[in-house]
Amino acid sequence: MEKIISLRNAVVDYDGDTVLKGISLDIADKQFVTLLGPSGCGKTTTLRIIGGFLQMNSGELYFDGKMINDLPAYKRNINTVFQKYALFPHLNVYENIAFGLRLKKMKESEIKENVMEMLRMVNLSGYERRSINSLSGGQQQRVGIARALVNKPRVLLLDEPLGALDLKLRKEMQIELKKIQKRLGITFIYVTHDQEEALTMSDTVVVMNHGEIQQIGTPEDIYNEPVNAFVADFIGESNIIDGVMRADYFVEIGGVVFECEDAGFGTDKLVDVVIRPEDIKVVAPCKEAIVGVVKDVIFKGVHFEILVETDDFLWKIHSTKSQQIGARIGMSLQPNDIHIMHKLIE
């Protein structure tokens, strides 16, 4: 796949803090890429570098193979959808969307055609004369999206654009954004701290923490094969427990040796083991299973969350079947449900 944006060794210091610790990132054309991580991980900083609102202390930014470190924001073929919409309060909906086209000195008839098409796309036809302040948050963000997309950028940057919307609207907008991205064939770079949002919408997810990239991969990869405990913990719920690699393909967890799919960690090596709560099978207590006592059962709608206590760990299980509190149960694991990772060195 063709690269449209490449970031090389990007370093950003802010007041003596290193916000980005030399990250490198390639973004393929026409993809939906999400930068995911907790607040302060450097994801917005990365976006602002690409948008041209922030200068790196060192590093290079390439667009279509050309270095654009010194190209000001207004000359980049990139547009941004801002977190708090950042619409022009002195202009109505139509003029907000037409803003970029007017700067390009486009003919009035063409401007009208483009703006109307965008309004149709974001389901705001008939709103063109409305003032910005009379719109709801969701409508304002649609205007923000239309205002950016009407310029037909090669890359659209979205900085937590749905953060201020309520859950239902956010879900609707996620699907709409994904549709728009597919239809227009524009590269989307999307910043969010919401892992579910990232998994739903993205072709590629870039997980960041402490100014470093932790993992780059498809949503399935990131979810099923997290490279370290941070990614595993951040993407969905998981049990992260100490384990010992007894040999290649064999790991001891909670005193029980399980077959697994990982090798190359060495013998008797301490590792992090990640097990998703939905992958644990409840069985009768036996030698081949980890045995524990049910401490609590919480009804979560689709499933029950069962908390099971063993000697040194509190397990979380998601199951459609409830268990009796205080009961002794066994937890059985299949080889492909066990994810082995090197211990994070902090």
Binding site: G51, G52, F53, A73, N79, L87, F99, G100, L103
Partner: peptide, 27 residues
């Protein structure tokens, strides 16, 4: 005037003088 509004103007193609003319002065 929110900083992001100024950034939005730059993002949409405003040079510094255009930012002042089209956003700062009207606001």
């Amino acid at each position: 005037i929110d900083k992001s509004v100024i950034e939005a103007a730059q993002d949409l193609g405003c040079s510094d003088s255009n930012v002042i003319r089209k956003v700062i002065i009207p606001l």
